[in-house]
Design a binder for these strands. Structure first.
Lengths: 345, 345
DNA sequence: CTGTTAGCGCATTCAT
DNA sequence: ATGAATGCGCTAACAG
C-alpha cells in the first residue's frame, strides 16, 4: 500500500494536522525540529499525496482535457504536443479526447471530463458543429461550470477565450503571393461551405484580388472538406475552369491537388502553381516542396494553456470575451512560380 | 454546484445508501416504486457521480496513462489514436504524456500518474533506455503497484505484458523482397546500434541473405537514429559502398535517403531501390510511392488496451510474462525494382 | 427492504 | 505550536 499522511502521523507521533501543515509549506508556527522530523519521515516512507483525495477537498485536479477530432491529423498532433508540453511545465496533466468530428462525442467527453473534475477543457471544435450545436456545448460547459478555451476555431457568438489564427490574413497572403507572380485566375480548394475559418480564407483571398483589381469569380471556389480526396476532386473541377494557380485551404488537400495534377501530366509549378495552408512537416520534403501558409501552432498551443491557467486562477469572470489572434505567414518553396509565358517581376 | 447523492437523498426522502444502491444497479431488494422515484430524481436533478469520490473509495479511476516520446511522430499518433479509441469504447480516459525520449521524464510521469490513481499505464519506452533504466522503471511501477503494458518495445528481462511487432520477420520480408528482385548489395539505414528492435530487423535481413546464399557484409549497415537526417547521412555513406538497394528501418529515414538520392541525381527505383518500414500514411502519396513494411499499428493499440483491461480485471498475477506479437507485412509500391541490367523474374 | 456507520486520504477550522 | 473534529462525495458492511 501507498503510505498516507496517517502513516506519517503514526510514524512520527505528530498529528495529522501538523503533518499536513508541514507538507503543504504552511508550517509558519511549527518548530524547525518538528518540521524536519516530518519532512524526513515523509522522505523515508516515500510519501506522495493521493491526488484523488487532494482533488476532492481542494476542488482542483491539476488535469486538463483536450478535445479534438483526430490526433493523427498532423496539425492536431502538433497542437497537442505543444499543449501537453506547456501543461507539463506547469504541473498539469492532459486527458486526450478524439471526437472524430462528432458533436455527440464532444458532449459525452465533456461530461466525462467534468465527472473527473478536470480544471478546464481545451477544445478544437468539431467541423460538424453549426452554431446551434456550439451553443449547446457552451451551455453544457456553463452548467458544468467548467472553464474552456476554444482553439483554432472562432465563434463570434461564444463569449469566452479563444486562440485563433487570422485566416483572413492567411488567405490574403496566399492570394497576394500568386497575384504578384502574375496569376489572375486562381482557383481555391476550400473547406466546407459554411465553415467560418474556411470562409475567412476566402475573404482574404477576395481582398487580395480587389487590391490588385482582379475580379472575383465565385465559380473558382471549390468547397471540399480538407482531406486528400477533396483536393483531387477540387483539382479536377478547377482544371475545367482554366486556372493557372490553385490555393488549397490546407496542405492535405494540396497533396490531393498535386496528386491529381501529376496524374494528368500537369507539372507544378511549370503548368500550374500550387499553394497550401498549414505548412505541416511533410510539405517541406515533398518532391516539389510545397509553398504554404504557416500557422504558428506551437505558440498557439502554449498560449491556449496559459489562457486556461489564467482563467483558472481568477475563477470569477470567465465570461469576458477574449481572443488571442496569431498571424500566419507565407513560406515560399517550389510549388509556385510565374504562370507560363509571364516573366516574374 | 453539482448535485450530489446527498441532494437526491434530501429531495426524495430516502437514505444515501438506498440512493447509492439504486444508482449502482444493486437494487435487488428495493421496491420498484422507490427505485423509479430515485432514478427519476437523479434525472431531474441531472445527477452524475463525482468520479474523484468514486475513485477514492473504489480504487479505480477508469483512467489510463499513455507514455510515449512524441505524439507528433506519425507512428505514435496512430498508436495513440487507436489506443484512445479502444479506451473510449470501454469507458476509459487516457492521459497523454510526451517524454521526448527522456528517461527522467518517464519516471516523473509515472509518479504523477500513480499519484492520480490511474488504473494502468501503456508505455512506448524511450529510446534512450538501456536495460538498467528499463529495470529502474519496472521497479518503480512495481513499487507503485501500477499495472503496465509495454508497447512496441520488447525487453526480455521484463516480465509483464508487451505488445510488439515481429521485427525479425519485418527485416526478413524487406530483404527478401529486394533479393527476389535481384539485388545482392543491400545497404541498411538502421536505428541506434544497441536498440533491440533495430537489431532484430538486421537479424531478419541476415536470415534472408543466408537463405539466398548471399554473404552478409557488416559494413553495409549504417547506424542512425530513425529520423530524416539520419537517412540523408546513411544514404551518403551507403552510396560509397556500391549498393543497388537500400533498406531504411523506418519511413522517415527512408524519406531522408530519398531526398539525398534525388539531390545527387540518382533515381528511385531505376538506379537504386528503396524500401522503408512503418508504412505511414505519407509514404503512399510521395512522388515515388514508397514500398514499405506495414506494421499493424491500429490492431496493436487495440490489443494493448485489451491486455491492460485483462490485467486490471484479474488484479493478481500481472507478473506472468505475456507477449503479443503482431506480424508485419510487405506493401509493394513503386520505390523498388530490379537492379539496372537485371530482368525481374 | 432500508438506514446507520465507517471509512477512502486529505485539508482546514477551531480549540487548547 | 499542535491536536480533535469535520467534511469533500461516495461505497459498502452491517444492522434491523
Amino acid at each position: 500500500m501507498r503510505t498516507t499522511i496517517k502513516d506519517i502521523a503514526k510514524y512520527t507521533g505528530f498529528s495529522i494536522t501538523t503533518i499536513s501543515l508541514v507538507l503543504n509549506g504552511k508550517a509558519h508556527k511549527i518548530p524547525k525540529a518538528t518540521e524536519e522530523a516530518i519532512l524526513q519521515a515523509a522522505k523515508e516512507l516515500n510519501y506522495r499525496p493521493n491526488q484523488l483525495a487532494v482533488g476532492l477537498v481542494k476542488k482542483q485536479t491539476k488535469t486538463l482535457g483536450l478535445i479534438l477530432s483526430d490526433i493523427r491529423n498532423s496539425f492536431f498532433a502538433n497542437m497537442a504536443k505543444s499543449i501537453e508540453d506547456e501543461c507539463r511545465r506547469n504541473g498539469w496533466n492532459l486527458i486526450l479526447c478524439n471526437t472524430n468530428d462528432l458533436h455527440e462525442r464532444e458532449m459525452k467527453y465533456l461530461q466525462m471530463l467534468a465527472d473527473k473534475g478536470v480544471d478546464g477543457v481545451l477544445i478544437c471544435m468539431a467541423r460538424e458543429n453549426d452554431s446551434e450545436k456550439v451553443e449547446e456545448m457552451v451551455a453544457l460547459m456553463d452548467s458544468l461550470n467548467i472553464p474552456f478555451v476554444l482553439v483554432d476555431r472562432f465563434y463570434p457568438e461564444v463569449k469566452g477565450c479563444s486562440v485563433i489564427v487570422d485566416h483572413d490574413e492567411g488567405g490574403y497572403l496566399a492570394a497576394r503571393h500568386l497575384l504578384e507572380l502574375g496569376h489572375t485566375r486562381i482557383g481555391c480548394v476550400g473547406g466546407p461551405k459554411d465553415l467560418a475559418d474556411s470562409n475567412r480564407r476566402t475573404q482574404g483571398y477576395i481582398r487580395a484580388l480587389m487590391e490588385k483589381g482582379v475580379e472575383f469569380d465565385p465559380s473558382l471556389i471549390f468547397y471540399g472538406d480538407y482531406d486528400l480526396s477533396s483536393g483531387v476532386r477540387g483539382a479536377e473541377y478547377l482544371l475545367k475552369k482554366d486556372v493557372t494557380a490553385i490555393f488549397a485551404y490546407n496542405d492535405m488537400s494540396a497533396y490531393g491537388v498535386f496528386h491529381y495534377l501529376k496524374q494528368q501530366g500537369i507539372s507544378v509549378p511549370e503548368d500550374i502553381s500550387l499553394i497550401g495552408y498549414d505548412d505541416i512537416f511533410f510539405s517541406e520534403i515533398l518532391s516539389v516542396p510545397l509553398t504554404s501558409i504557416h500557422q504558428p501552432v506551437e505558440e498557439m498551443g502554449t498560449e491556449a494553456v496559459q489562457q486556461m491557467i489564467r482563467i483558472i486562477r481568477q475563477k470569477q469572470k470567465q465570461d469576458t470575451k477574449k481572443n488571442i489572434m496569431f498571424q500566419p505567414y507565407l513560406v515560399v518553396r517550389q510549388s509556385t512560380a510565374a504562370p507560363a509565358g509571364v516573366m516574374h517581376k
